[in-house]
Design a protein around this nucleic acid. Structure first.
Lengths: 240, 240
DNA sequence: AAATGCGTTTGATATAGGTCAAAAACCATG
DNA sequence: CATGGTTTTTGACCTATATCAAACGCATTT
């Protein structure tokens, strides 16, 4: 199962990582940066479908995604599952586990991926000494809370079309921030996973994609999305 | 509007606060505790309907609720609002504002309330020196993330009856943790606010209360709830 | 005590999205 | 490049919840 490889070839330091501005954009001098580099030295790779962690496992570290794509999901006792997010390079996951020292959700690779491990006790230690790192850690956690509130808004008061439009715009914006096209991208997740995330059934997701296509807002061929009318999509979500 | 009163009579220190075990259960010696007391010395009172903060306002402090009851809500540009939580004594709000140095939601008193102000820069400063405070602050933020995931599960994959049952059980558990009856309590919020929180219309909330009553699970007379069959309610949510 | 007003309950009806089912497209593998 | 399994699409029909509307209860004001 956890076919995990600690690959020394992947020993890329924060200081020379091209995701630094997204992931840990902390203002540190050379010596301080060395200490951060030391902390984040463990990299691991995951194949599609592998679990980075599972609900219930002991909490030791946060994880920064270097390449690839993950989903996180919470499980209900009766077997229902709710996707709580899709994560891409530069994003940090595992924050939920701090509260109880155990992971409260699963993280699954949706494609072959690489992560940096950030042992949490050492991160706390270092952030006690480096205020700008401390502040950044707090911002990351707070940002996750804000993100969650946005999803509550989406799930609690939007219609299917608004939800899917908001989802696509969010993906577009995040791909764009990583230097990829905002208009054309590949979906790493199934209709069912999108549906779980958006509180919809997979058939509804599929139909809504078709509606958008009929209205000329986008072209979709299974996992390949091309947004034709960004403003039209935005109008759906209210941020026209 | 912000008819705020800084009341010196309310200068209750953390060290002697009876909510300490809920709010900031940090293992500190006498001298350290004094420093925490100094930090949390500002108390304020709010009348029902008053705003503790509004979306967009500058972020300066977190707030610990001493007495009373609040709701937090996010606003959508088109006027829709989504209640993101109901907070009771011992709980800390304002965490969402750290990410952007501005509040991203409103906090409104649902009854006359008192809060302790925790200036965030001083809290960060102190938590750099007191690892157990630092750890606790992280746990509070993480707990909020876990809570939000639970709401996503609720909004994304539960039916109306399950949502309301989960909501009532959650309130019950929190009242109980504060020394009040888990079986009988007063709702501080309207049907409409419950509905917003649960992603339902107020009529659905009202009807679902009636169903529960018909099935002998609880008695409800407007805002007064008496749970008759706790296990019956639990069975709805799957945690039977 | 009557009047006003908000919040709640209940009923009748409408509809967005769910469910079930079948076909089509896609993908991994031998 | 045939095969079997998964994912996606589309259609027909159904249901949980929304919508609209009216009455009611309770608190506050006059």
């Amino acid at each position: 199962m956890q076919n995990v490889v600690a690959n020394p070839a992947l020993r890329i330091a924060c200081s020379s990582c091209n995701l630094r501005e997204l992931c840990l954009p902390v203002d540190l001098d050379g010596k301080e940066m060395q200490r951060l580099d030391a902390l984040t030295s463990i990299k691991r790779t995951f194949r599609r479908g592998e679990y980075l962690y599972r609900s219930g496992e002991n909490f030791r570290a946060l994880y920064a995604i270097r390449t690839g794509f993950f989903k996180t999901q919470v499980l209900h006792e009766d077997g229902r599952e709710q996707v709580t997010g899709f994560q891409m390079p530069g994003e940090i996951i595992g924050l939920d586990a701090i509260s109880t020292d155990a992971h409260t959700c699963d993280a699954v690779a949706l494609e072959d991926s690489e992560i940096c491990e950030l042992p949490f006790d050492r991160l706390e230690e270092l952030s006690r000494e480096l205020p700008s790192l401390q502040r950044h850690l707090h911002k990351i956690m707070s940002r996750e809370i804000v993100r969650d509130h946005g999803i509550m808004m989406l799930l609690g008061s939007m219609r299917a079309e608004e939800r899917l439009a908001a989802f696509l715009l969010n993906l577009s914006q995040r791909f764009s921030a990583r230097g990829y096209s905002p208009n054309s991208f590949h979906l790493r997740m199934t209709r069912q996973e999108i549906g779980s995330y958006l509180g919809l059934k997979l058939e509804t997701v599929s139909r809504t994609f078709s509606h958008f296509q009929e209205h000329g807002l986008l072209n979709v061929r299974v996992r390949e999305v091309e947004i034709m009318d960004m403003l039209g999509l935005r109008r759906f979500v209210g941020n026209n």
